[in-house]
Design a protein around this nucleic acid. Sequence first.
DNA 1: GAAATTTCCGATTTGACATATAGGAATACT
DNA 2: AGTATTCCTATATGTCAAATCGGAAATTTC
Lengths: 151, 151
Amino acid sequence: MKITRKGEYAMRALVDLALHYKKGMRQIQDIVREEDIPEKFLEQILLALKNAGFVESKRGVGGGYFLSNPPDKILLGDVIRLIDGPLAPLDCVSKTKHVKCPKEITCGIHSVMLDVSNATAEILDHVTLADVCNRTKGMAERRAEHQMYYI
Amino acid sequence: MKITRKGEYAMRALVDLALHYKKGMRQIQDIVREEDIPEKFLEQILLALKNAGFVESKRGVGGGYFLSNPPDKILLGDVIRLIDGPLAPLDCVSKTKHVKCPKEITCGIHSVMLDVSNATAEILDHVTLADVCNRTKGMAERRAEHQMYYI
DNA sequence: GAAATTTCCGATTTGACATATAGGAATACT
DNA sequence: AGTATTCCTATATGTCAAATCGGAAATTTC
């Protein structure tokens, strides 16, 4: 699995929406300003996220986007699968994308990559948007502490 | 990390060489026949593997390739890093490839991807070519048993 | 020492895909 | 009616994976 810009933008946008959960609409422009993402590109991404049910939207004046579900119900693994495809490092290992691999039957490499794939999924399917927000917060706080010591 | 064809071919070729370790030279043609890899492409790959010290070679009649070290001393992680680059799913997480990421300081996503990167490395830096060979063998045997039961 | 074999090496090609950008249609509010 | 905002499709662009080509260099064999 390689996470593309698109996938990274999708996660950043969703984290942004998570930080503003239940605080009203969030417009593309707001996210663009905050996250420094090309506007038209983000538009496409949010559309995909909407069609997949991660976010909802409202058009017109005062419109915008918001999360369909609470941040602690949205798994990073699902977001990445939607935008960047299977988590497996090799296509022939993926459960969703069925590509036959040569000599799969006796392929030890395949077996190792399955382990990697499972380890990755184990992490990404247990980390929610809320977790990401907390991590970010925690990192910022630790950083603030460090600064205090040096004053 | 996405493993490309090139990386897959490299691993398959090395496993092939591992299976013939200490049994003399192995020519490109032999590997091509066994593993079904485009010949000229494999040529490039073996050259890279040679320059990196994984294999040695000899030219001319009766020449060919062979592993520089025993199969149980070659880690899959090192092979993949050489051919396909850093194991991290995001470049800004990689330790080798230094790309600055926006707002890295407070980036929870970064932190999660670091976990993924470490989990991947933990696996691939402990699996050797010998392990892969054994896995392949084990899978083939289990398959043989199954067939026996059904006779 | 000529011929055959095999690796070595750089250049080029091809196609797919990531990364956007453009332009307007549809909808909702004031 | 007019403005703001999302929706949607098409197109451009650049990069890189994947492979091919043509010949140079080394080694063995006869």
